[in-house]
Design a protein around this nucleic acid. Structure first.
Lengths: 196, 196, 196, 196
DNA sequence: TATTAAGCGAGACGGTACGTCTTGTCTTGGA
DNA sequence: TCCAAGACAAGACGTACCGTCTCGCTTAATA
């Protein structure tokens, strides 16, 4: 009963200082020189950390940057509430585009690129980024149905694909900006019938 | 007059055999081992070609694969004609998805990834791939307006972003397949009001 | 003055089990994989011992193997007695060569090599191995002088250098074997005039 | 007959500058910091040369230093001629010891050590160093037989082992110097009967 | 009998070097 | 002038050990 609970982990505990230095440095280099200029060697050098320490905890530079990004962007996009779907979607898109235009967008682009030739990272990225970011949007659309702003039989998964797809397309192909006009145009096209 | 006609450029002319061998080998390696396993070194080795010969004519491995892809896929997607926009768009999407599911999709994914960390290639890719592929779709949508299947004030550029965006999103994030159901769902969502 | 006199060693005494496991494992790895495949890391792993435990008690892997070797070869070469110098030297050399041909030779070679780039170990090796092994031979030669088998003014230190030198030379250069023929030939050359 | 002889090697020829820089740097580092402080990485760094260039031409750092040593010590020990064996051997040993005491000795020691845990290098070292250096001595001893300074049935191979062995023993064990006294003592012990 | 200091295993840490790989350039001789 | 061949400087890759450190747990002598 009063028997002490045995600590599971033995040995020297993981250094949080090293961990944080690695994450910070990785993000800093990525922002400064771009993701393709990021090397494990470079992180180790600038973070003042041994290479094996990096390899011990991360499988690839993609995962480091991803974790750093998640950590920094702890604050989730606030889900617009108590708005019409029209208003809510517009708010959602504008907040999304604003965030992406602050430099975060370049990192996100790089991570999507990385996922294309690293299947392990692709799985992580899909599960921890793509899927998670879809949830608020799906919730928004679902509420739209509940509220009667959308037909009950609307395929909201595909609708989310159209919305997020448009964002990714412009983010990656860079043929046009992610601006307020784009947000308005998307809303207008997807939620056309604005019944009085 | 038995003097040989000197071509404008002197010296040995460019070897078409070498050129073709490079393109073929690059495509073959990409299909076999994936784009990230493709190296200039490897192309030179397998094509029996000197590395400088490759560097003389292409700036990056992205451009080689891109050129090889363009060459192979000479035959453009045939623009559906004399159909309703609904029918036409569905046909267009199904043909597109079918093509992407044959292995071409993986190469296209890799090229989009490559464009994310090679600005020079990104420009080429945007101009010679993204933009060009948009034209038939824009034409289709434009015809839709003409035919009265779409309101005259429809922003067809953004509509094209929604359509192609959905494709790229699923192609890159791999969270759901590019299949006939998806094509149908897109059409249903974007061209909802089917009068008469 | 009431200050207590602290015993020199307080706390938990050194674990003999760990000590012996380290020595045994080191010798075993050296015999199995060779001295250059021996690592502190490897000893710790196979002996089920922490690395600091090794570093606490030994300065280098050379010293571990040396101690293990000394421990195993506790039984010294028996000094031949009551023989002529000729007979005694021959017996001595044959016993020496036989020992070296059992696998001990490889370890001894490695230790001599180690001494070449570790001055601390070199001092230990010279004092505890080289010098100690010379004593029986010097005794033998000294007895030879006493018995009249050697001239009284013979420089037995240099004579010992010639004898042990020949052994080391063949052991290290491996250009010829350490066999009975070699022992006979050495004796014949160094103690030529066998007067009646 | 007048058919041109085709050059066997195509491509860019080996850079003699790089080759020499590597050899020079390797020798310099070895002399400055010792052989065990010599690393391929360090040679590349100081010589301003790529690592693969080193690995392309040498299998190990032992071989680099060995080649550098051979190149520097092009001038062979001059074989003493027209001397009695006594005089000749003394001259030979004194020249040998003098050379070894100039810093060459430390390098030679390291190479012998290296040969103990690198079988490939050991073969090279035995063939290109040990064996080659034995030849002049064997010649000297052979001439001694011819001249009548040695019995005709003298086993000169073993005699050479005794002589070179004594040198190696003192060089490696460092228990006594390689000086003129040692040379004299060796000669006195091995060539005792100096008739008239 | 309780305290306590040292030893113990485990294992993370900052480093360094390894040997390999690819990059983009340069330098040949042959076509 | 272009080509193949291939050497070059550069530098990142991921791994293996190094020697040090920090843990929590024994363990036996001391008080």
């Amino acid at each position: 009963m009063n028997k002490t609970f045995h600590s599971i982990s033995r040995g020297r505990p993981r250094s949080t200082a090293a961990r944080q230095a690695i994450l910070d440095t990785a993000l800093q280099i990525t922002k400064r020189d771009g993701f393709s200029a990021l090397t494990i060697e470079g992180i180790a050098r600038e973070a003042g950390v041994g290479k094996p320490t990096i390899y011990r905890w991360w499988q690839s530079k993609g995962m480091i940057v991803f974790e750093a990004l998640q950590q920094q962007a702890e604050k989730e996009l606030p889900l617009p509430e108590n708005m019409s779907l029209r208003k809510g979607l517009l708010t959602f898109l504008q907040a999304l585009f604003t965030t992406l235009n602050t430099g975060i967008g370049d990192i996100v682009r790089s991570l999507m690129a990385e996922a294309q030739h690293d299947p392990v990272f692709a799985d992580l990225f899909r599960a921890q980024f793509i899927s998670i970011r879809r949830q608020p949007l799906l919730q928004l659309l679902h509420d739209g149905i509940t509220r009667g702003d959308l037909p009950a039989d609307t395929n909201i998964e595909v609708l989310a694909d159209l919305i997020y797809g448009a964002m990714w397309y412009r983010l990656l192909a860079q043929h046009a900006p992610l601006d307020a006009d784009f947000a308005h145009a998307i809303v207008k096209l997807l939620l056309p019938a604005s019944p009085s």
